[in-house]
Computed example of a mutant assay.
Amino acid sequence: MNPSTGRPVELAVEDVGYEIHGRTLLHGVDLTARPGETVGVVGPNGSGKTTLLRCVHGALRPTSGRVLLDGADAGSMGVKERARRVAVVPQEASGTFGLTVREVVAMGRSPHKRFWEQDGPDDVRRVAEALEAVGAAGFAARRFDELSGGERQRALVARALVQDPGLLALDEPTNHLDIRHQLEILTLVRALPATGLLVLHDLNLAASFCDRLYVLEAGRVVASGTPGEVLTEDLLARVYGVRTRVGPHPTTGGPSILYLPPDARGTCDGRPAGRR
């Protein structure tokens, strides 16, 4: 089943910086995602991952640099035009109180309709397909605010799917999900005819589902490349402050990370474990 028909968008983030209240959260970030590619953004807490994603989908306006969608400056696009190209799955949803899951998912059709235009048969079909695709059809009539965290996450992914995006921007899409639904959602996202930009904490999931990775630390890109090029024991020690063993996954051949406890001194290569 394929509930999305959007044409993949080429994303280019050029020298993007973001500053608020005198604090710089992003420092000249460059990032590209080719049409149809799945690109992951990883890094420790506070590294700027969510800020970068918000600059890409338009919740924040960069204080320097620019975001290009198929070569066009996203900052000059209207809200609806940008929403027809980029759909977002945030960590938390707003404006959903009192709505059913089906109504929340149907909100994804708004960028393609005129103000107050009612849902037509095609909209209803797309919503039903998206609910089925993410395993949410069984609770479509329930109120969104009464759902568990995992159920909400699946509904938000369905809302993004019916938007028919060329670029799907996901902020921790596996948050609150059990292992089965983590794998199902990421498999679905990867199979869509859309470019994917994913913020992920789980590095093994990032290695399995992303074509390329960007590692952020303190608002700067400190590494980029394929998962095999990026996820090395040295980088994980330097950026995350953890001891690891990285070897080939027995099925995919990509990197598989085993986390080790701190040594007797509670250090990782001479650094306090957990230090950022």
Rank of each mutant, 00 (worst) to 15 (best):
G270Y: 11
A169R: 05
R85L: 09
A128Q: 11
L168N: 00
G254Y: 04
R34D: 13
M77C: 04
H176T: 13
D145M: 10
Q118T: 15
G219D: 05
R152A: 11
R34E: 14
R102T: 10
E132G: 14
G219W: 05
G274D: 06
A191H: 07
I179V: 15
E129M: 14
G48V: 07
T244H: 03
V127K: 01
P173D: 12
Q91S: 03
G228R: 02
P44D: 09
L53N: 08
M1V: 15
A140D: 05
L69T: 01
A160T: 05
L188A: 08
T226M: 09
G43Q: 07
G78P: 02
E184N: 12
L60W: 06
P62T: 06
P111M: 09
R61C: 12
G219R: 09
L198I: 14
G247M: 11
T32E: 13
L26I: 02
G166R: 00
L231H: 10
P173V: 12
S208F: 13
H57S: 07
P121V: 12
G120P: 11
V13I: 11
E81N: 08
E229Y: 05
V13A: 08
A141N: 15
T50H: 09
G46Q: 04
Y240N: 01
L11T: 05
W116V: 15
P3C: 12
E37R: 00
A93K: 08
R84Y: 05
V79S: 14
S64M: 00
P62G: 04
V9Y: 00
E132N: 15
L161E: 04
D178C: 12
F115N: 13
T63P: 09
R159S: 05
M1K: 13
A160M: 03
V56Q: 02
V242S: 06
F139R: 03
A194R: 01
V199F: 06
T232H: 04
L26V: 01
L236F: 11
V86G: 02
D171H: 14
S256P: 00
V230K: 03
T100N: 02
K113C: 11
V221F: 09
E129R: 14
N45H: 09
R82C: 12
P250N: 08
H181Y: 15
R66S: 00
P248M: 10
V42W: 00
G71H: 03
H201E: 07
G138W: 04
R190S: 03
F144T: 07
D73R: 11
T252V: 06
S148H: 09
D15V: 09
G254D: 08
L170F: 10
G150P: 08
R180H: 15
E81I: 10
H57T: 06
A133L: 06
M1C: 13
V222L: 10
D263C: 07
A72Q: 12
R275L: 15
L205T: 04
L198C: 10
